[in-house]
Simulated assay, not measured.
Amino acid sequence: MSSNTRTTLTFFNLPVSVREKIYRYALVRKLVFIRPFVSMAYFQDSSRKFHTDGPILSLLSTSKQIYKEAMPIYLTENIFSIVHSDMLTAARLEYPRVFENLKLIRRLELIFDSRDYVYLRQFILDNLPNLRAEIEFTAPDSKHKRAALERLDEMCSDFDVDGIHDASQSPRHASVDEDQETHDRHIENMKDYLWGRTLTFVRQTFRLTHLYVDVRACTCVNGCCRLADEVMSWGWFYVWVHGLPDEIQVRGASKQEMDVIASTFDGQLFHEGLEKEEIYDLERAEDAHGFKQYNALLKSVRQGIIERNL
């Protein structure tokens, strides 16, 4: 061999242990948010703020080998914070690889903050009319279109309740019964559209080693009653399909609430002999096929909007 011959070194000539250190430096952070929005808890609690860039996800696109080596590190070693699950639910239905990747997540944080519901409610009220109009005028007539429009009308009705009460403002002139009805509707919306939906998704999808639950702001939207002692039973899937997390840490609960939460988790163990109605809400499970069609309709409408704007 000539003395002038040079050996070409590449990234993959590095030992695997060194490559993994580089992956961790680029991809592992104290916390990774799965949006659509960051919980209000992080804007209000200075002890939880941290100054760091997000993970460098572009690294995963550089080569198939890097993706194969680095993605498990990204998914298994980060703590992922989920506020609302619809984005992940849709991605799981549409992209098999996303579903497979989600199975690798081992550490999850759930924040129950009523201010997130306020944000979600306003976002839905601002955007539902436009979405409904797009479906009305662009989707071909079918039973799925009619079902989607009916569902959106129900959502508008659910969220178009009286404004959330602010104790600093002048009192509203409403009867006790009206106030109670508004209060109960907001809680049902939390259960159906936010926390309950997220808990259903989490129980179905993940095999967790660590679950971090924050219930410091787990109240009704008026702040007049705590929900921490009941919220963990919400959702239409009642058991943890892949088993309970190995370790569960709950922040912000009283001793009495902790006892109820612990009992609730204990009752969500999946084991042989459970009846169907003990595992999931039978009526909601029947809507699963309809949801897929509804999702497909929304996808076609979205594509039409994109094509018009090109």
Rank of each mutant, 00 (worst) to 15 (best):
42 Y>S: 03
293 Q>H: 03
11 F>L: 15
265 F>Q: 05
107 R>T: 07
28 V>A: 12
291 F>W: 13
290 G>C: 10
237 F>D: 09
126 D>S: 01
218 C>F: 08
35 R>Y: 12
173 H>G: 06
243 G>C: 05
178 E>L: 09
2 S>C: 12
305 I>F: 02
283 E>V: 14
143 K>A: 08
168 S>I: 03
140 P>Y: 07
157 S>F: 08
297 L>C: 09
219 T>N: 08
169 Q>P: 00
257 E>R: 00
95 Y>Q: 12
50 F>Q: 09
275 E>A: 12
163 G>E: 13
196 G>S: 04
142 S>T: 12
175 S>C: 10
7 T>N: 13
239 V>Q: 13
141 D>T: 10
242 H>S: 12
300 S>I: 13
303 Q>Y: 05
270 F>M: 15
182 T>F: 06
281 D>L: 07
240 W>C: 14
228 A>L: 01
200 T>R: 14
202 V>S: 07
249 Q>N: 10
141 D>L: 07
234 W>K: 05
253 A>Y: 01
108 L>Y: 01
69 E>R: 04
213 V>S: 00
115 R>K: 15
259 D>F: 03
121 R>I: 05
84 H>D: 13
53 D>F: 14
136 E>N: 07
229 D>L: 01
286 E>H: 09
234 W>Y: 06
151 R>C: 00
278 E>Q: 15
222 N>Q: 04
71 M>H: 01
73 I>C: 08
268 Q>G: 03
112 F>G: 08
154 E>D: 11
139 A>I: 01
31 L>P: 02
97 R>T: 14
105 I>H: 09
168 S>M: 06
212 Y>S: 07
96 P>G: 05
235 G>N: 09
305 I>E: 07
242 H>Y: 15
103 K>S: 13
88 L>A: 04
31 L>V: 07
96 P>D: 12
96 P>I: 02
140 P>H: 04
19 R>T: 02
121 R>A: 05
301 V>R: 08
92 R>P: 00
98 V>K: 04
80 F>E: 10
46 S>M: 05
201 F>N: 04
170 S>A: 10
76 T>D: 06
4 N>E: 15
102 L>F: 11
114 S>G: 00
194 L>A: 03
54 G>V: 03
63 S>Y: 06
103 K>I: 02
153 D>N: 11
182 T>D: 11
279 I>Y: 06
145 K>S: 06
204 Q>D: 12
44 Q>P: 00
67 Y>S: 07
43 F>V: 12
3 S>L: 13
68 K>H: 09
212 Y>Q: 06
39 S>K: 00
134 E>H: 07
106 R>S: 09
99 F>A: 14
15 P>K: 10
219 T>K: 11
26 A>Y: 08
6 R>Q: 14
125 L>M: 11
71 M>C: 12
